[in-house]
Deep mutational scan, measured.
Amino acid sequence: LQLFIKTLTGKTSTVEMEPSDTIENLKAKIQDKEGIPPDQQRLIFAGKQLEDGRTLSDYNIQKESTLHLVL
């Protein structure tokens, strides 16, 4: 599924993920695209901070969801 990652600067990146992927996997993919180390990334979806060990489906993240990346 395609996700949009929006940064505080207003920049939006697109990443392709599976519902079974963990937040950790997602942060690794963001690191590949943006060069931001996972330990500096905080991802927010629906007002919640996402935890590394959980999966996208745990948070009911659907295709074309927008996640907010806070550093």
Rank of each mutant, 00 (worst) to 15 (best):
E18C: 10
L8I: 13
I30Q: 00
A28F: 11
K6H: 13
K6V: 14
H68S: 08
L50D: 00
V15T: 03
I5W: 03
L69Y: 02
L8E: 13
R42Q: 11
Q41M: 15
F45N: 02
V15N: 01
I23Q: 00
T55V: 07
S20F: 12
S20Q: 11
G53S: 12
G10F: 03
K33M: 15
Q31E: 10
S20W: 15
K27F: 02
I36Y: 13
Q2R: 14
T7R: 12
G53W: 13
G53P: 06
V15E: 02
S13I: 15
S57Y: 08
G10W: 03
E16Q: 11
Q31P: 01
D58R: 01
R42D: 06
S20R: 07
L56M: 06
K6I: 14
T12C: 11
Q41D: 01
I36H: 09
E24K: 12
T66A: 05
D39S: 13
K48Q: 14
Q31Y: 15
L8N: 12
Y59I: 03
S20C: 07
S65Q: 07
I5L: 05
L50R: 00
T12P: 04
T22A: 04
L3K: 01
F4Q: 08
I5S: 00
Y59W: 02
Q62M: 10
E18W: 13
P37I: 04
L56F: 06
F4L: 09
I61K: 02
L1H: 04
H68Y: 15
R42E: 08
K27D: 00
V70Q: 08
G10Q: 04
T7N: 09
E16L: 14
K48D: 06
L26T: 02
I44H: 09
Q49M: 13
F45Q: 03
R42W: 09
E18H: 14
E24N: 08
D32M: 14
N25S: 13
L71G: 07
T66Y: 07
L1P: 03
D39Q: 12
A28S: 10
E64Q: 12
T14L: 12
L3I: 14
P37G: 05
T66R: 05
D39W: 14
P38H: 11
T14A: 09
M17H: 04
S13P: 02
Q41L: 09
P37K: 06
I30C: 00
D52P: 07
K29P: 00
G35E: 03
E34P: 02
D32K: 13
I23L: 04
F4D: 03
N25K: 15
H68W: 15
A46C: 08
K33H: 07
M17C: 11
L43M: 03
K63A: 15
H68D: 08
L50G: 00
D39I: 09
N25Y: 13
L67D: 01
K48N: 10
Q40S: 08
Y59F: 04
R54C: 08
Q2C: 08
Q41N: 02
T12M: 13
A46F: 09
D52V: 07
L71E: 08
L50P: 00
T14Y: 11
Q2S: 10
E24C: 06
K48L: 12
E51T: 06
P38E: 07
K27V: 02
P38I: 15
V70F: 14
G10N: 05
D58K: 02
K48M: 13
T12H: 06
D39G: 12
Y59H: 03
F4R: 10
N25A: 14
T12N: 06
Q40Y: 10
Y59V: 03
E64G: 15
D32S: 12
P19I: 09
D32V: 12
I44L: 11
E18A: 12
E24Y: 12
E34I: 15
L8K: 10
Q31L: 09
T55R: 11
A28L: 14
T9G: 13
Y59Q: 03
G47Q: 04
Q40E: 10
F45H: 06
S13T: 15
K6W: 07
Q49L: 15
S57E: 12
I23Y: 01
E16G: 07
F45A: 03
Q2A: 07
L69H: 01
N25G: 08
E51I: 08
E18I: 09
T14N: 07
K6G: 03
E34F: 15
N25V: 12
P19H: 07
K6T: 12
S20G: 13
L67W: 02
G53I: 07
A28V: 11
I5T: 01
S20Y: 12
I30Y: 03
E34Y: 15
L71A: 08
T14M: 14
Q40H: 13
T66C: 05
G35I: 02
T7F: 15
N60R: 06
L69G: 01
I30L: 08
L67R: 01
A46H: 14
M17W: 08
L56K: 00
T22M: 06
D52A: 07
L3D: 02
K33C: 06
L3C: 02
T9F: 13
K29D: 01
Y59R: 00
V70M: 12
G35H: 06
K33W: 09
K33T: 12
Q62T: 14
K63Q: 14
Q62S: 12
Q31N: 09
S20L: 09
L71R: 08
E34V: 14
V70N: 05
S65D: 14
F4I: 12
I44P: 00
K33N: 09
I30M: 04
D21F: 04
G47H: 05
E24I: 11
T66N: 04
P37W: 06
I5A: 00
N60W: 05
A28R: 15
D52E: 09
A46I: 06
L67H: 02
I30N: 00
I36Q: 03
Q2P: 10
M17L: 07
P38F: 12
A46W: 08
K29R: 11
I23W: 01
K29N: 04
D39C: 10
Q49T: 14
M17S: 05
K27E: 00
T14H: 08
L71D: 07
L3T: 02
I36K: 03
I61W: 03
E18N: 13
I30G: 00
K11P: 06
K63Y: 11
K48R: 11
D39K: 12
L56W: 02
P38W: 10
G53F: 11
L26E: 01
P19T: 08
T66W: 08
S65V: 08
D32G: 08
D21L: 03
P37A: 08
L67K: 01
F4S: 07
T14I: 14
N60Y: 06
K11C: 10
P37R: 09
S13E: 07
I23S: 00
V70E: 11
K48I: 14
E18L: 14
T22R: 07
I61D: 02
I5H: 00
L8Y: 12
I5P: 00
L67E: 01
E18D: 12
K29T: 06
L69K: 00
R42V: 15
S57P: 02
S65I: 05
E24W: 14
Q62H: 10
E64S: 12
Q31H: 14
D39H: 13
I44A: 04
M17Y: 11
R54K: 14
M17A: 13
T14K: 10
E51L: 10
I36P: 04
R54Q: 07
P38Y: 12
D39V: 10
S57F: 09
L71W: 10
L67G: 02
T22D: 03
K33R: 11
K27G: 00
K11R: 10
N60M: 07
I30E: 00
M17K: 01
K6N: 05
S65Y: 06
Q31D: 04
G47V: 01
G10T: 03
L8S: 14
I36F: 11
K33D: 05
E51S: 07
